[in-house]
Design a protein around this nucleic acid. Structure first.
Length: 280
DNA sequence: GTTTAACCCTGCACGC
DNA sequence: TGCGTGCAGGGTTAAA
C-alpha cells in the first residue's frame, strides 16, 4: 500500500472514526498478533492505552497513518504490503489474519488484518513521535503545496543515484513505492536507471509533474487493487486505478502509447516495469 | 555516499 | 494430489 491507498484510508477514517470512543480493544491470541504490535511488550498495555479514548484527528505521514486520541496519545498504523483496516460489526465473523479489533462505544468496530505481518500498529505519546526513527526521517509529501519543483530539482542534483530506487526512498520523497514509481517514471518518459543528477531542467519538470499527476489521479480513483494482493478501503471496496496503470504488471503487453511490449528488470530487489521505447 | 543482500511472513504459481 | 521452491513486497540494517 502506497501513498494513494493510505490517503484514501485516511479520508475514510476521518468520516468513519473521528469522534468515536473506543469501548475495548482485542489483540487476538495468535503469535502474529504480537508481531503486529511488536513495539509493545504485552497485549494489555496496548489495549489499555486505547480503551476509553476518543479519536480526534487522522493524519498521514508518507505511508503511515496517525490516529490521534484525546489524552495525548496517537495510534500509528503502517500497512506494510498486506495490511488492511476494515469496518465491521460484532455479527460479522473476523477474517483470517485479523490481529487487532477496536470496538466502538457507538457500535461497530475496526479490524486490522495482515496476512504477511509486515504491517504494524503501536500507540505512543504525541510528544514522543519525533523519537520514532522511521517516522522522523520521512521526507516531504509530494502532494503538499510545499513540495516545489525548485526544491525537488535541488534534491535530485544533490544525489547521484538511479531514479527508480530514489523515488522509492522515503527519505527522498514519501509515499512512493514500487507500483507508483514505475507509473511516474513512465509518465515522465524516464528510465528506471537514469541518474538523478543527469536530468535536464525539462526532464526534472516532467518528473515533478508526473509525480503529482499520477498520485493525484490514483487518489481520485481510490487506489490500486491488483488481483493478487487485494487492497480494499475501510468499507471493503476495491480501488479503480488498476485499470489506469500504464506499465506496472503489464509485462509483455503492448505499451499503451507506442505498442512496444512492456519489459521488466530487477533493480534493488524490486521488479520494475517500463517501456523500452517511451522511456529514456 | 551509494548499493547490495538479507531479514521478517504468508499465499500463490509453478514444476515434478 | 501433493510436495518443495521461488517469488512478491516495505522498510531497516549490516556489509560491501
Amino acid at each position: 500500500m502506497e501513498l494513494p491507498e493510505v490517503e484514501v484510508m485516511r479520508r475514510d477514517l476521518e468520516k468513519e472514526v473521528v469522534g468515536k470512543k473506543v469501548r475495548d480493544v482485542e489483540v487476538r491470541p495468535h503469535r502474529n498478533a504480537m508481531r503486529v504490535i511488536r513495539r509493545h511488550s504485552r497485549r494489555k498495555e496496548f489495549a489499555d492505552r486505547l480503551s476509553g479514548r476518543k479519536f480526534t484527528k487522522i493524519d498521514r505521514k508518507g505511508k503511515y497513518l496517525l490516529l490521534y486520541l484525546d489524552g495525548g496519545d496517537v495510534l500509528v498504523v503502517h500497512f506494510g504490503m498486506s495490511g488492511q483496516l476494515l469496518r465491521g460489526t460484532k455479527r460479522q465473523t473476523l477474517p483470517q489474519h485479523t490481529h487487532v479489533v477496536i470496538d466502538f462505544q457507538q457500535g461497530g468496530d475496526l479490524r486490522f488484518i495482515d496476512p504477511r505481518t509486515f504491517g504494524e500498529m503501536f500507540v505512543t505519546a504525541v510528544d514522543q513521535l519525533g523519537k520514532i526513527r522511521e517516522l522522523d526521517h520521512i521526507a516531504i509529501d509530494p502532494l503538499e503545496d510545499t513540495f516545489t519543483w525548485q526544491e525537488f530539482s535541488g534534491e535530485l542534483a544533490r544525489r547521484a543515484t538511479k531514479l527508480k530506487p530514489l523515488l522509492m526512498d522515503q527519505k527522498f520523497v514519501s509515499g512512493v513505492g514500487n507500483i507508483y514509481s514505475d507509473e511516474v517514471l513512465f509518465a515522465a518518459g524516464l528510465r528506471y536507471d537514469r541518474m538523478s543528477d543527469s536530468l535536464s531542467s525539462q526532464e526534472v519538470r516532467r518528473l515533478y509533474r508526473a509525480m503529482r499527476e499520477v498520485l493525484q489521479d490514483a487518489v481520485r480513483f481510490r487506489g490500486t487493487t491488483l488481483d493478487d494482493d487485494a487492497y480494499v478501503d475501510v468499507f471493503g471496496k476495491s480501488g479503480d486505478f488498476a485499470a489506469e496503470l500504464k506499465v506496472y504488471g503489464r509485462k509483455g503487453l503492448a505499451c499503451r502509447r507506442c505498442r512496444t511490449p512492456i519489459d521488466t528488470v530487477k533493480i534493488s530487489g524490486r521488479t520494475s516495469y517500463f517501456c523500452p521505447q517511451c522511456q529514456s
